[in-house]
Simulated assay, not measured.
Amino acid sequence: MKVLCLHGKGTSGAIFRSQTASFRARLSDKNIEFDFLDGPFKSDPAAGVDLFYEPPYYAWWDSGDVESVRAACLWLNEYIAMNGPYDAALMFSQGCVLGSSALLLHQEETPHLPPPFKTAIFVCGGVSMNMLQELGFHVSAEAHERDSASRTALEKQAGVSAVLTQGVNRWTGITGGLSEDELRNEIQSPYCVDIPTVHIYGSKDPRYAAGVHLSSVCNPDKRRTYNHGGGHEIPRTTEVSSSIAQLTEWALASIDV
């Protein structure tokens, strides 16, 4: 099995390798090759990342508009054509936006061709609201407002000052009180990503709603979700690592051969 690994903005393939080491160690007896690549754009470090990891840092685009995301998807598809095929994609944060956009564009434009990967594992991710609207999805005003507010809150809660003064207690999320089903109903989908998907998010992550929104555009009969209970991170506790490893195994076992 070959897994493409897409890091978050302001990190790198090497950093993502480190962030996923705990749960990947539980898969060491499986025949899985993880391919960690770097985004094509140099970037400032993500909030708080430079406290723990040295540069360089990368991003998948330098602007989040639709054309930039489309260009990144084209870049990704070219990389896959040269280095794939890939059975799965493992993604974090901005990497999830890239991977979900590539899958949605495939569904819209080339559904007769194989998807860029056969299963997807999204961690603390979201979907491009602008891309959804470009593709004919209905996104509520509340979802747009929540998405914007969550990005501001993430910068604050993940930042150096919060890390140094509050530690793990910095993660407070955004109080909203909506259920996962209510959040999913904020996006109306004309079609959905139709491969097996895993959606991992934390209820204390300011981007929690974004992770739930992403799950809403994926086939509910082929998706699994897991709330790790933390912030915008991949907790390395035994319980969380074991759960993510099990979900990864499920995703790979669900591939249509």
Rank of each mutant, 00 (worst) to 15 (best):
M1F: 05
L6Y: 04
H7R: 08
G8H: 12
K9I: 08
T11G: 00
R17V: 02
Q19D: 11
A21Y: 02
F23A: 05
K30H: 09
N31Q: 11
F34A: 06
P40R: 11
S43Y: 01
D44I: 05
D44V: 06
G48E: 10
L51G: 01
Y53I: 00
Y53Q: 05
Y57A: 07
A59S: 15
D62S: 14
G64M: 07
G64D: 08
V69K: 04
C73N: 04
L76Y: 03
N83Y: 15
P85I: 12
Y86G: 14
Y86P: 12
Y86Q: 10
Y86L: 13
A89E: 06
A89H: 02
L90T: 01
L90R: 00
S93H: 07
G99Q: 00
S101K: 06
H106I: 10
T110Q: 13
T110S: 14
P116I: 09
T119V: 12
T119L: 07
A120S: 11
G125R: 01
G125F: 04
V127H: 05
M131G: 03
G136T: 00
F137Y: 14
V139Q: 03
S140P: 05
E142M: 09
H144Y: 03
H144P: 03
E145S: 12
E145A: 14
S150E: 09
S150L: 07
K156N: 04
V163H: 13
L164N: 07
N169S: 15
T172K: 12
T172E: 12
G176D: 13
S179R: 03
E182I: 01
L183M: 10
Q188A: 08
Y191P: 03
V193A: 05
D194E: 13
V198E: 00
I200D: 13
Y201Q: 01
G202Q: 09
S203N: 13
Y208W: 14
A210L: 15
V212M: 05
S215P: 06
S216G: 10
V217W: 06
V217A: 02
G229I: 08
G230W: 07
E233A: 08
E233C: 11
T237G: 14
T238C: 01
A245K: 01
L247V: 05
A251F: 05
A253G: 08
I255C: 04
I255Q: 04
V257A: 10
